[in-house]
Simulated assay, not measured.
Amino acid sequence: MEIMIYDHTDGVLTKAQEQETLDLLQFAAQQLSISEQAEMSVTYVRNPEIREINKEYRNIDRATDVISFAIEDDETLDLPAEIKAELPEELGDLFISVDKVRDQALFLDHSIERELGYMLVHGFLHLNGYDHERPDDNGAMFKLQDEILTAYGLTRDANNEE
């Protein structure tokens, strides 16, 4: 899977966090059997930028931790199957606030790495059609999220701060 990372954090995002982003999302893609042709982006931002995105697209005027924009492209429906098979599957875009990741890790008393992983997998699952708006969806999505994080090695008690 191709993952593009954009850093709008003015130097807050570390190279280790960028690498962790790539490694964890590749792992999650393997767990869900996502095509190697798939593409997505992750943009790391600070609270003011994610607040503006949240306000513009969700009509909520406050900073949040992660926002996902899934791409549902129906324009390729009329193409021949051979051509469709060669086109990359565009999953969508994640926006993650590094400020919220830090604050929530402190509040929940676990590592920044664990909180970042949680946000990445949570957003990734949304890009792949998982949701938690209805009570019957909620359990399945969070169970899968915990399974992926645990298999990757980011457990709830991973308290090794960066």
Score class of each variant (00 low, 15 high):
residue 27 F to T: 05
residue 125 L to M: 08
residue 74 D to S: 06
residue 45 V to Y: 07
residue 135 P to G: 01
residue 4 M to T: 13
residue 153 G to A: 00
residue 123 G to W: 12
residue 62 R to F: 07
residue 105 A to R: 03
residue 75 E to D: 12
residue 23 D to R: 08
residue 32 L to G: 02
residue 131 D to G: 12
residue 122 H to G: 02
residue 34 I to T: 14
residue 28 A to Q: 06
residue 142 F to L: 10
residue 58 R to A: 03
residue 96 I to Y: 11
residue 30 Q to E: 15
residue 47 N to H: 05
residue 32 L to T: 00
residue 26 Q to R: 13
residue 118 Y to L: 06
residue 68 S to N: 10
residue 159 N to W: 10
residue 113 E to P: 00
residue 39 E to C: 13
residue 51 R to T: 07
residue 151 A to F: 05
residue 121 V to E: 09
residue 159 N to H: 13
residue 161 E to V: 02
residue 112 I to V: 02
residue 18 E to Y: 02
residue 110 H to F: 09
residue 55 K to W: 00
residue 146 D to R: 14
residue 143 K to R: 13
residue 50 I to H: 06
residue 114 R to I: 01
residue 142 F to K: 08
residue 106 L to Y: 04
residue 159 N to C: 13
residue 123 G to T: 06
residue 109 D to K: 15
residue 50 I to R: 05
residue 157 D to A: 09
residue 47 N to I: 01
residue 145 Q to L: 15
residue 20 E to P: 01
residue 4 M to N: 08
residue 128 N to V: 04
residue 115 E to V: 06
residue 83 I to K: 11
residue 66 V to E: 15
residue 77 L to D: 15
residue 100 K to C: 11
residue 111 S to T: 04
residue 64 T to Y: 01
residue 160 N to M: 11
residue 41 S to T: 12
residue 43 T to P: 02
residue 21 T to Y: 01
residue 52 E to A: 13
residue 135 P to W: 06
residue 149 L to Y: 10
residue 31 Q to A: 08
residue 116 L to V: 03
residue 123 G to V: 07
residue 127 L to C: 09
residue 77 L to R: 13
residue 102 R to S: 10
residue 56 E to C: 10
residue 62 R to H: 11
residue 5 I to R: 04
residue 159 N to I: 10
residue 4 M to I: 12
residue 110 H to V: 05
residue 150 T to N: 14
residue 18 E to F: 00
residue 17 Q to P: 02
residue 101 V to F: 03
residue 2 E to N: 13
residue 135 P to L: 03
residue 141 M to S: 05
residue 49 E to F: 02
residue 23 D to A: 09
residue 14 T to M: 00
residue 56 E to A: 15
residue 99 D to M: 10
residue 128 N to A: 08
residue 52 E to S: 12
residue 95 F to S: 05
residue 68 S to V: 01
residue 126 H to W: 01
residue 154 L to S: 07
residue 85 A to T: 06
residue 67 I to K: 07
residue 5 I to D: 03
residue 4 M to Y: 09
residue 93 D to K: 15
residue 83 I to R: 11
residue 40 M to V: 03
residue 58 R to P: 01
residue 59 N to M: 08
residue 162 E to V: 02
residue 147 E to A: 04
residue 161 E to P: 03
residue 89 E to Y: 10
residue 131 D to N: 09
residue 65 D to V: 08
residue 156 R to V: 03
residue 69 F to S: 05
residue 72 E to L: 11
residue 67 I to T: 09
residue 139 G to P: 04
residue 56 E to R: 15
residue 146 D to E: 12
residue 135 P to F: 06
residue 117 G to I: 05
residue 148 I to F: 02
residue 12 V to T: 13
residue 10 D to Q: 12
residue 121 V to C: 05
residue 66 V to K: 09
residue 35 S to F: 04
residue 55 K to D: 08
residue 140 A to P: 01
residue 23 D to H: 01
residue 31 Q to V: 00
residue 139 G to K: 14
residue 40 M to R: 07
residue 75 E to M: 10
residue 125 L to S: 03
residue 90 E to R: 13
residue 124 F to Q: 00
residue 38 A to G: 00
residue 140 A to M: 06
residue 6 Y to G: 12
residue 109 D to N: 15
residue 148 I to A: 01
residue 20 E to N: 00
residue 108 L to M: 09
residue 6 Y to S: 12
residue 65 D to E: 14
residue 118 Y to T: 11
residue 42 V to G: 07
residue 78 D to F: 14
residue 18 E to L: 06
residue 101 V to W: 03
